[in-house]
Write a protein that binds this DNA or RNA. Structure first.
Lengths: 239, 239
DNA sequence: CGCGGTGTTGAGACCTGTCAAGACGTGTGG
DNA sequence: CCACACGTCTTGACAGGTCTCAACACCGCG
C-alpha cells in the first residue's frame, strides 16, 4: 500500500533501493478510521505524520461561524500531514472522506532522515512544496474562477493525480465526495454544486453516477477550467 | 538586512551562532528591482532562491483569461521562493510591489545545508510549510469569508507579520499596495475593494492614508475577520 | 417500513462584478 | 511654472452569479 507513495515520489525523482527501504521503515504501524471522522484536530501537538494507504481524506479549515473549507484532497499515497513534522501542530483538521487505512510515521524517524539522508529529505521537502502548489492553485480557483471552472478544474486535477497512482480507468475514476463535500472543496454551497454539476453534464463534459466520475471531453473540460497541469510538477527531475 | 530573516526564524526556533553564520554565507550577492516588475517568471528553471531584504513582493498566479490572484504577500525577511530549491521552477510569478532589494541564494548552497546542517534544514523546511499555512488561510478567506472579512483578515495578518520584523508602529504600518493589488490579494475587483475599504473606515476599524494603515480597533477588526493567528506559528519551538 | 443522509428544484435576496465616467494627484516635459 | 498625462481612487447604475430558505424526492439501511 505504501507503493502509492513510492509511485508518487518516483514520478518526480529517482528513489534508490536504500531510500525505498528507508521509506518503508518509516512506518511504525497502521490505523483504520471510519468515514467522516476528524483524524487530526487542528492545534493538537503531534509526534507523528500519516500517510493515506487507502481511502480519501482532506485538509479542512473551519471558521468559528461554522463555515468549512477544504484546502486539499488526499488520495492514496499522500502524506496528509508531513508538514506537521516541522510545524508540530496543524492549522487545520485532517478529516476522512471515506473509510481510510493510514500509515503512522513517527517524527523521530523523519528527524533521522534529515540527519542521514539529505536527498530523501529533499524529496520529502518537495512533497510538502507540492502540497503548497496545490493550495496556491486552489486559491486561484477560489479567488478568480467561476463555479463551473472551479469544478472542472478539480475534476482535471483529480484525474491527473489518480493517474499517477494508477487509480483511473481511461478518463473515469471513483469519486466518493458528496455534493456537500464538493462544495467544501470549491467554496460553494451544496445547492450551487448541484446546479453546476448539472451544467457540466448538460455540456456533455462529464458524467457522474454511483460515486464515479467519467470525463467525456477532457480537452473541453480543461478549456472550461483553464487547466494548466504544471502546478502538479509531474515531470521527473533530480531534487 | 538579512537580520529580518533571522528575526523571523528566531521567532520560531533557536538559531545557533554557527547556523546564523551559515545563513549569512548563503547569500552570493544582492540585486535591486523596480516596483511592479516580474522578478521570477512562472516556469523558468531556477538555480537560486531570493530573500526580500527590503520592499514588498508577492506570489502571483495568472489565468490565461488575464485574471490574476496573489497567493501570498512577501515582506522583508521572507524567502520569496525557497520552494524553488526543490521545485526547480515555479507555478507562479514573483512580482515586486515596491522597489525591492533581494538577496540571491544559490541552490547549490542550500543543497550543502541539507547535507551538513539537518536542524537548519528543518528550519528552512518549516519556513516553506509556513508559506503553505498562509496559502491555506487565504484559501479559507477566498472560499468562505465575505469581502469585508477577507480584507480585515489581511490587515490583521500583515500587522502580526510586520511586528515580527519590527516594522509596525503600534497598530499602524506602511501599506504600499494599490487598491487594484489589494483586490488581487483578496479575489475582488478594485471597485469592490474601494467600497469595502470605505465600509471598514465607516465602521471605524481602520484608517488608510498616504499608503499607511492604522488599525483603530484591533479586537473589532479581528472579530470581523474571524481572525485566529495560530496559522502564523508565532510561538518558539524546537524543530 | 421508516428514517437519515443525500440529491433536486424553485423563488427570491444579496453580494460582488461590470461598465462607464469623472475626480484627484503627482510627475514630467515644454 | 504651467499643462498635460497617466495612474489611482471614487461613484453610480445595473447585471448577474451565488446564496438562502424551503420543500420535496430518492435511496440505502436498520
Amino acid at each position: 500500500m505504501i507503493e502509492n507513495l513510492l509511485k508518487k515520489l518516483r514520478r518526480r525523482d529517482d528513489i534508490s533501493a536504500e531510500e525505498e527501504q528507508t521509506v518503508r521503515n518509516l512506518v511504525s504501524h497502521t490505523v483504520r478510521v471510519a468515514a467522516d471522522k476528524v483524524v487530526i484536530r487542528a492545534g493538537e501537538l503531534l509526534k507523528e505524520s500519516l500517510i493515506v494507504l487507502d481511502g480519501w481524506a482532506a485538509r479542512a479549515k473551519d471558521l468559528p461561524s461554522g463555515q468549512r473549507q477544504f484546502a486539499e484532497i488526499h488520495l492514496p499515497g499522500d502524506f496528509t500531514d508531513l508538514h506537521s513534522f516541522t510545524l508540530k501542530r496543524l492549522d487545520h483538521d485532517i478529516v476522512s472522506i471515506t473509510p481510510c487505512v493510514l500509515a503512522v510515521v513517527p517524527h523521530e524517524r523523519l528527524k533521522k532522515v534529515t540527519e542521514r539522508f539529505p536527498h530523501l529529505t529533499r524529496v520529502f521537502w518537495f512533497s510538502t512544496n507540492l502540497d503548497a502548489a496545490i493550495h496556491r492553485e486552489w486559491a486561484l480557483s477560489l479567488g478568480r474562477r467561476s463555479a463551473i471552472a472551479r469544478m472542472a478544474h478539480l475534476f482535471c486535477e483529480l484525474l491527473l493525480r489518480l493517474e499517477v497512482i494508477g487509480m483511473t480507468n481511461g478518463h473515469s475514476y471513483d469519486f466518493p465526495l458528496t455534493q456537500a463535500e464538493l462544495g467544501e472543496s470549491l467554496g460553494l454551497t451544496s445547492v450551487h454544486v448541484n446546479r453546476t454539476l448539472q451544467e457540466l453534464r448538460r455540456m456533455a463534459l462529464i458524467e457522474v453516477e454511483n460515486r464515479r466520475v467519467t470525463i467525456l471531453d477532457l480537452d473541453a473540460l480543461k478549456g472550461v477550467a483553464e487547466f494548466d497541469p504544471t502546478y502538479l510538477y509531474l515531470e521527473k527531475r533530480t531534487r
